[in-house]
Simulated assay, not measured.
Amino acid sequence: MTGSFPGALIGLEVTRTLRNKKFMFFSVIHPSVIYLLVSGTRNTTGTVPGSDLTTQAFFMVSMASFGALTAVLMGNSERIAKERERGWVRQLRLTALPGIGYVLAKTAGAAIVSLPCVVVVFVVAASVRHVTLDAWQWFALTGLIWAGSLVFAALGVAIGYLAGGDAVRPITMILYFGLSILGGLWMPTATFPQWLQNISVWLPTHAYAAVGRSVGTGGAPEARDIAILCGYFLLFAGGAARLYRKDTLKA
Rank of each mutant, 00 (worst) to 15 (best):
R42M: 15
R42A: 11
N43C: 03
N43Y: 15
N43F: 15
T44C: 02
T44M: 05
T45M: 09
G46C: 01
G46Q: 13
G46T: 08
V48C: 13
V48I: 13
V48D: 12
V48G: 14
P49L: 07
P49Y: 14
P49R: 15
G50F: 14
G50V: 07
S51A: 10
D52Y: 14
D52C: 03
L53T: 08
T54D: 06
T54V: 04
T54W: 12
T54Y: 13
T55V: 11
T55C: 09
T55H: 14
T55W: 06
Q56D: 13
Q56W: 09
Q56S: 15
A57H: 01
F58R: 02
F58A: 07
F59Q: 00
M60F: 10
M60G: 04
M60D: 00
V61W: 00
V61A: 10
V61G: 02
S62G: 03
S62V: 04
S62Y: 06
S62Q: 02
M63W: 07
M63T: 05
A64D: 06
A64R: 01
F66P: 00
F66Y: 15
F66S: 00
F66M: 00
G67K: 04
G67Q: 04
G67S: 02
A68E: 02
A68Y: 07
A68C: 06
L69R: 08
T70H: 08
T70W: 08
T70D: 13
A71I: 08
A71T: 12
A71V: 10
A71Q: 14
V72H: 14
V72M: 07
V72D: 01
V72F: 15
L73W: 00
M74S: 10
M74C: 08
M74W: 10
M74E: 04
G75F: 11
G75D: 11
G75M: 07
G75Q: 14
G75S: 11
N76M: 13
N76E: 14
N76W: 03
S77K: 02
S77H: 07
S77W: 03
S77C: 15
E78P: 03
E78M: 14
E78L: 11
R79L: 04
R79S: 15
I80N: 09
I80F: 04
A81F: 04
A81R: 12
A81T: 03
A81Y: 11
K82S: 12
K82T: 06
K82Y: 10
K82V: 06
K82R: 11
E83G: 00
E83W: 07
E83L: 02
